[in-house]
Every structure is written in structure tokens, then in C-alpha cells.
Amino acid sequence: MIEVRNVTKKYGSKAVVDNVSLTIARGGVTSFIGPNGAGKSTLLSIISRLMPYDHGEVLIDGQSVARSKSNDLAKKISILKQENHISVRLTIRELVSFGRFPYSQGRLTKEDQQYIDAAIEYMELGDLQHRYLDQLSGGQRQRAYVAMVICQNTDYVLLDEPLNNLDMKHAVQIMRVMRRMVEDLGKTVILVLHDINFASCYSDTIVALKDGRVVHQGSVEQIINTQALHDIYDMHIPIEVINDQRIGVYFT
């Protein structure tokens, strides 16, 4: 379980995350949604200790994030952010292998190789694994990064807008993998998503942020409805139910 208690983060005098308290239970997909600048990415970074907070506390399975060793946390929680710029050439396999670093510190054992193989296969990258990242398409690169995160084998997996720059087919692919990770492997997945419809179709819980605060939290039915969405986005969004999915028609 992840507990966020009264966390605040300020940039200058502006509170980007404003006294947020939140509990995320184990298992399932939780999506953070909200308008730009709501603090979703910042909150995710804070939970995964990529960014320090000014007040409050974050506990993962009872352990305070600020007081835990980075290496211990690396075995519990993993995060994938948007910008991933590397200055050296890596093959897919080499990238995925980094996922084992918290466990073997770079000295890969036979066991590590098995984890790496499994992660590569899970993301269907077997044929491409010896190709260099800069030779791949955006979608394939993203899958490689997700494979690395899988290889890291943590209970909690956090992803910050993983669908940006992906075409429809690959976006759906990634979301399906998220669900499989929860169902097959028992992981807890937390995503920051821009698109409310992806959130609607794939989440178990949704947390909505606005101006650094949590304005709504609950199941898909509770959040994906016109009233709640209006609170969050200041927009009127009619909801249609298609194939048992709640879809927000926000285009017009």
C-alpha cells in the first residue's frame, strides 16, 4: 500500500502539490488524471523519490520513502518518465538488462539473464533485442523501456504519460500490458494519463487532481461522469456507454 500524507511541494511561492493525502491499495491499475499543471507528474515523482517534498510523508508498505535507501526502494517501486534521452547507443537487451541493477549491481548472473529473457518476451521484442534503440520506432522504444521496468520486477510500477507520442495501436498495446501486469503478475500499476478514455477503459481506480489538490477519487463510474469531469476539467463532457465502456465525448 502507498500512503501519501499531507504532502506539499512548492516552487517558489506556488504550491504545485498542495497538502495531498492519498492511499493507493495494492493491486490494480490506478490512474491520475487532471488538467495540465495539476501536479500529477510532480506527485508521481515525489512518490517514487525522484523529487523531494517540502512537507508531509510518503510511505510505501509502511516504510518512509525519505528514510529508505535508494537501492532498497529500487526493488519495490519503479518509475518510467516521459523524457528518456541517452547519449550512448544501447541495444534493447542492454537497456532491459539495466533493470537488474538493483539486484546484481551490474554483474549479471544466469538468473538475471532469465529475467531479462522473460521481460523481452513479455513485450514481444525477442526478434529486435540486439538492435540499437536509435534504430527503432517510438512505439518499439517505449516497449523496450517498459520491458526494462518489468525486468526490474517491482511490486509497484509507476508510469508518467506512457502513451505520449504513441500511435493508437501501440498505445492500446501498452495499456493491455499494464492490465496483464496486474492480472498475471499481481503488480500495482499507477499511471498518469492525459486521455480520460484510456483511464476509463483500463483503470480500477481513478484519482483526479486539479491545482495541486485531489478533487475526486474513486471507481470509474464515480469519476467518469459529466458532473465529476466538469469539476475537474471545467468542461462539459457527455458520457456514452459503448461496449460496457464509459467514453467521454469531449471533442465538440
Binding site: S48, S70, D72, A74, I79, P102, Q152
Partner: peptide
Amino acid sequence: DQAINLGV
């Protein structure tokens, strides 16, 4: 970010 993620 990735370095911290991987425990460095």
C-alpha cells in the same frame, strides 16, 4: 531519473 529509479 532512471539512475535514481534503479537505486543509484
